[in-house]
Simulated scan of single mutants.
Amino acid sequence: MTVDHLLQTIPPLVVYLLTGVVIGLESLGIPLPGEIVLVSAALLSSRHELDVSPTGVAVAASIGAVVGDSIGYAIGRRYGMPLFEWLGRRFPRHFGPGHVTVAERLFSRWGVWAVFFGRFVALLRIFAGPLAGALKMPYYKFLAANVTGGIVWAAGTTYAVYYLGIIAETWLKRFSWIGLVVAVVGGLVIAWYTRRRTDRLAREAG
């Protein structure tokens, strides 16, 4: 079975659900590769022989982002900053004191905009909801930034990758697997660089 045939056996609903769930869990505060999943799903939607819709991917990603962040906000508001102390002891690589300090500084400087732009930054993507709740940010401000940021990030990323995929398909015959490989490798490189920079900032802050 070729890669093309294998891709055609994936039900679109599975793609939408996987995209929404992974992004939702990442937004809730669990460090998962939400951006890589979104890019891969958007690339699948650019293949016209597949039934995956870019609108479906964008909607699923937006819902996952908004719901995940909202649940994270509720958890952060319920347990406050001690939640991050506990997470720091259990998962120091992702929630160490330095990481929390960097996120707090960004929130102090940018306020509600940290929630909006946090959707585009790996560190803030897992901190935005819980930290906004722990810092007692008014929910109506959080919700407005959460919804707009989630939709702009999800829809913008989906359609940018979708149209790039269509253009690339004109030039690449086995784009299905080439595109996915490029997306995964590119996503891993970006994630590695962002993690390295974040860890450096966290060490300096700690």
Rank of each mutant, 00 (worst) to 15 (best):
V189K: 12
R77P: 06
R77T: 01
G98W: 05
G156C: 10
T101S: 14
G80R: 05
S70D: 07
T19Y: 04
F175M: 09
L6Q: 11
S176L: 14
S27C: 10
W177M: 12
T198W: 10
E169V: 14
S176D: 15
L50D: 08
R174I: 00
L43G: 08
G34P: 04
R203D: 13
R195A: 12
V39A: 12
T101W: 09
L135R: 15
R90I: 06
A122Y: 03
A154L: 08
F107Y: 07
G76V: 02
I63K: 06
V15E: 01
H5V: 11
D4Q: 15
M137Y: 09
L135Q: 12
I151L: 13
G179S: 07
A114G: 08
E35P: 03
F84G: 00
W153I: 05
V184P: 07
S27F: 02
V52D: 02
S70W: 03
Y162W: 11
F175Q: 12
A134M: 07
T198Y: 15
F127T: 05
T148W: 08
F91Q: 08
L32K: 07
A122R: 02
V152Q: 01
L50S: 08
V3I: 13
V102D: 03
G64D: 00
I71A: 10
F84I: 01
M137P: 03
Y159T: 06
D51F: 12
R47F: 08
M137A: 08
R200P: 07
G34S: 11
L87T: 00
Y140A: 11
R196D: 13
Y163A: 10
A61H: 03
R90V: 13
I75G: 09
G206T: 08
R174K: 10
L131G: 06
G76C: 00
V66D: 00
M137N: 01
G24S: 08
L106C: 10
Y79C: 04
W110L: 11
V161L: 07
K141I: 09
Y159Q: 05
V181E: 09
Y73C: 04
I151P: 03
F107L: 04
H94D: 11
V52G: 00
R77N: 05
R203K: 15
V67P: 04
H94W: 12
V14Y: 13
L87F: 01
S45Y: 05
G56W: 10
E169M: 15
P82M: 03
K173I: 11
G72E: 04
V66Y: 06
L38A: 04
V3T: 10
H99A: 10
G20L: 06
I36W: 09
T198R: 08
G186K: 07
A42R: 04
G156M: 13
V161N: 00
G80Y: 06
S62H: 09
P138Y: 12
G24K: 04
G34E: 05
P31C: 03
A41K: 09
L38T: 00
